[in-house]
Amino acid sequence: MLRRTPVGTYVIAKIKKEDDEGTYVLLNGNGATPEGNIPFLDLFNINTGSKERIWESDKEKYYETVVALMSDQENGVLHINELKILTSKESKTENTQYYIQSWPDKKPCQITNFPHPYPQLASLQKEMIRYQRKDGVQLTATLYLPPGYDPSKDGPLPCLAWSYPREFKSKDAAGQVRGSPNKFAGIGPTSALLWLARRFAILSGPTIPIIGEGDEEANDR
Rank of each mutant, 00 (worst) to 15 (best):
R130K: 12
I202Q: 03
H116K: 03
M128S: 07
P119R: 13
E167A: 13
F184T: 05
G175D: 06
Y131L: 01
P158L: 13
L143F: 08
L121Y: 10
V177E: 02
L160M: 10
P165F: 13
P117R: 01
W162Q: 12
R199W: 13
P115W: 04
S123L: 11
Q125W: 09
L143D: 11
P189S: 15
S152H: 12
G186I: 12
D172E: 15
G155Q: 13
T140G: 08
H116E: 08
S191G: 08
F114D: 06
A197Q: 15
F184D: 02
G155T: 12
S191Q: 08
Q120W: 02
V177G: 00
C159M: 14
S170A: 05
P151H: 09
A197L: 08
K183H: 01
A197M: 11
A201L: 01
L143Q: 09
Y149I: 09
A197V: 00
S204R: 03
D172Q: 13
K169I: 10
S170L: 09
R178T: 12
G136M: 06
G148T: 07
G205M: 03
Q132D: 00
L193K: 15
A197P: 00
Q125K: 10
A122F: 00
A185Y: 04
C159D: 01
G175M: 06
F200R: 04
A197G: 14
S170F: 06
L203M: 10
L157D: 04
T207H: 00
P117Q: 06
